[in-house]
Design a protein around this nucleic acid. Structure first.
Lengths: 207, 207
DNA sequence: GTCTATACCAGGATAGAC
DNA sequence: GTCTATCCTGGTATAGAC
């Protein structure tokens, strides 16, 4: 018996590949594209640099593969969320619940915030990735909300889709501003107040 | 007579300094922090690299100086905007005008968009700059809008500040999403429809 | 398929002439 | 105060052993 890895002496390609992607995620999310070095990626993945290059063409290829993987995996969590199903119930409750969950999910999820930073920060150099992000991410969310709002005749909304965009946009902006740009430390604004303000604006039953 | 610069053979320090900042702006806004090289900054400023280092301690110092300068100069244009004065008039008109101007200003101003990308993208590495941005930028704008909304008793707003944040947040998010992330090419949404939706949501007089 | 070792290049920063 | 020339580190990518 030696001190090496007991289960499988020779690890297979798929294992290495996912280890590399995992290391790449750690580095790219923390440092951004240009500041990340293949050395550190290899170290984080506990793999030699040459192995990284045998699995991915170059730094750019690795980055693109990583982002695509994150889009597919991370997103179902944040945007697909508990409400993959259609929404139903009284607007006040549904909207409050929806906003609350969305903020909670994103604010807790630091890696996802780093991912937002990365996508926005690198959107100049990697426009394709930004386009893919715009295309896939808020699609289902927006569409579900739009349908729900459109079906609530009691709300008297002139443009349900615009309303849905305002709803989501306000919340995403809240996260970008308060969290990514540290506004919470400098011009704080309670999460609950934001949510309540948004719900009141949309529902607006004269209570 | 030689072929060199006729006006002043030896340029002064202040001139060089602003040339360097100008070159730095060009490079940092286009490439981001890490991908920008001091060589290219010097070239863009038509100055030797040593001169750059005589005016600024290092790359980081140059970057910070640049961002601070941009905050002070660029901002009065975009956020101070035509409405530095207090707002007055009927809500529908004022809000529509305000939103329209704000979007117009930001969407036309590509350098400012690059600046947003930069601030968000580098907010992990330069949290101080992000904090300064959060602190100064939308301050006056938000405050003016909040006061205006609070004064319009006809609107029946429960929380004018929350409403003001939703207003600005929706619009900023619109820019980030549609412009910076190229959503306009992939899930387009008319600017005017966004503005109208926002105004309708806030004003909401049953016409 | 994976590692070690290395080629090659570029970037940040500085020394020294003028 | 500004330039030219240079140092040195560290990065991407690959060659060759196992």
């Amino acid at each position: 018996m030696d001190t090496k890895s007991p289960p499988s002496e020779r690890q297979l390609s798929a294992t290495k590949r996912s280890a590399i992607l995992s290391g790449a995620m750690q580095e790219f999310l923390a440092q951004g594209y240009a500041a990340t070095t293949m050395d550190r990626v290899a170290a984080a993945a506990k793999v030699s640099k040459a192995t990284v290059y045998s699995h991915f063409k170059d730094k750019e290829g690795l980055f693109i593969a990583l982002v695509q993987q994150l889009q597919e995996k991370k997103f179902q969590v944040v945007y697909g969320s508990p409400e993959g199903k259609r929404l139903q119930g009284p607007p006040r409750q549904v909207l409050h619940h929806l906003a609350s969950n969305m903020l909670e999910n994103i604010i807790e999820d630091k890696p996802f915030q780093a991912f937002m930073r990365l996508i926005i920060g690198e959107s100049g150099r990697f426009p394709e990735l930004a386009r893919a992000f715009s295309h896939h991410t808020p699609r289902c969310f927006l569409s579900i909300l739009k349908d729900y709002l459109g079906a609530q005749s009691g709300l008297n909304l002139k443009d349900p889709e615009a309303t849905a965009r305002i709803f989501i946009g306000s919340l995403v902006h809240y996260v970008i501003f308060q969290e990514l740009l540290y506004a919470k430390e400098v011009v704080p604004f309670a999460r609950e107040r934001m949510i309540q303000g948004l719900v009141d604006l949309i529902v607006n039953d004269s209570a």
